[in-house]
């Protein structure tokens, strides 16, 4: 859901960066409290994810380094630091430490009821905040400068969105793990984007896609041995994306190709008709028959185009001869003036 905003804000890889950046937070929270309580670990992850995000932002605005460099930098450095802490923790005499690395790859099967409740609550919270600030989010998304002139506190809204994205990522970490979280954030939104141009529909669709890939992924992974849940969910989501890329009615590759072919056919039809018009013009009687052979050395001509012209009642065929009908002649004469409007 929140992924829609990330995709539209061209911050897609932010999810990847945050999910890596959350690792040191988890480790530090564990070091401080010494207990493996999910909530404290999540708060740690949240804080370090936020620090990572804002550091990325300040690198991009304050120096000439580009956003991709900043992302890669923060991602790898935070993750490395997290690894350092994790290995450091492993050497500590604390029996509790086992299982911390579960956060790396995620294991949906290890979730307990309280975790699920926690997720449900946070999701609900996201929903409420999103509905209340819907207008602000939308306007900031598409025209940040305009928002500022309208007097909205853009910084506040920006931080709000970012915080919720981070929150969603951190929660998702437990389920699908660090590496695959970015796909969970992106894939449903990218798929939804192909089907609609409206933000609200897109968010709604993304939520549905996300939920479906979650359900299907879990079902597939449960039906077979040795199949971890996270990767399967991600693959299902990727299939959704591929499907959307190819089959979406207005932006999809398939329909684009069909449209290209259709346009080419139309053009050929028009060319043939124009050529016929050109010949017919030389006679006083427009319905004067001409030999089909005449058309043969014209490149736009095929049997099927001629057939189509007949179907449209522009041309009559009599044995080996063709002649333009009245409507055909008029259409051909108006072809060039009309073409621009017709093609729209």
């Amino acid at each position: 859901m929140l992924g829609s905003f990330a995709v539209l804000r061209k911050q897609s890889l932010l999810g990847d960066a945050i999910s890596h950046a959350a690792l040191p937070g988890i480790a530090i929270a564990f070091l401080i409290t010494g207990a493996k309580d999910t909530n404290t670990l999540l708060i740690g992850a949240l804080i370090s994810g936020l620090i990572g995000t804002f550091w990325i932002k300040s690198i991009v605005t304050k120096t000439h380094l580009k956003s991709d460099t900043a992302l890669g930098l923060i991602l790898s450095l935070f993750f490395g630091f997290g690894m350092l802490l994790l290995t450091f923790i492993q050497k500590q005499p604390n029996a509790n430490q086992a299982g911390l690395d579960k956060y790396l790859f995620g294991q949906a099967a290890t979730l307990v009821e309280s975790d699920v409740w926690m997720m449900a609550i946070v999701t609900g919270l996201c929903l409420i905040v999103m509905l209340t600030f819907w207008k602000e989010f939308k306007i900031l998304l598409f025209d940040a400068d305009y928002t500022k002139t309208l007097g909205f506190n853009t910084k506040f809204i920006d931080i709000l969105i970012t915080t919720f994205i981070v929150l969603a990522i951190v929660l998702g970490l437990q389920t699908v793990g660090v590496v695959l979280m970015s796909a969970m954030l992106l894939a449903p939104a990218a798929a939804a984007r192909q089907w609609t141009n409206s933000l609200s529909v897109m968010v709604f669709l993304a939520a549905i896609f996300g939920a479906f890939s979650g359900v299907f992924g879990t079902a597939i992974s449960a039906s077979q041995n040795n199949l971890s849940t996270g990767p399967v969910i991600v693959l299902v989501a990727s299939v959704f994306v591929a499907f959307s890329f190819i089959f979406s009615p207005s932006r999809g590759l398939l329909f684009k190709q069909i449209r290209v072919i259709k346009n080419r056919r139309d053009l050929e039809l028009h060319k043939t008709l124009a050529f016929m018009h050109h010949i017919a013009e030389t006679h006083k009687d427009i319905s004067h028959p001409h030999a089909i052979k005449l058309l043969n050395n014209f490149q736009g001509y095929t049997k099927s185009t001629l057939q189509k012209l007949v179907e449209k009642d522009y041309v009559q065929i009599n044995g080996n001869m063709w002649s333009l009908t009245k409507t055909g002649f008029e259409t051909a004469a108006n072809l060039y003036t009309k073409q621009s409007t017709e093609d729209e």
Partner: peptide, 23 residues
């Protein structure tokens, strides 16, 4: 294809490949 931006494309491709590897 112009359907998504570059960063989204990156974010879509590598988790998918990685998942295949993990599986």
């Amino acid at each position: 294809t112009g359907l998504v931006k570059e960063d989204t494309a990156i974010g879509l491709v590598f988790p998918a490949l990685f998942s295949i590897g993990v599986i």
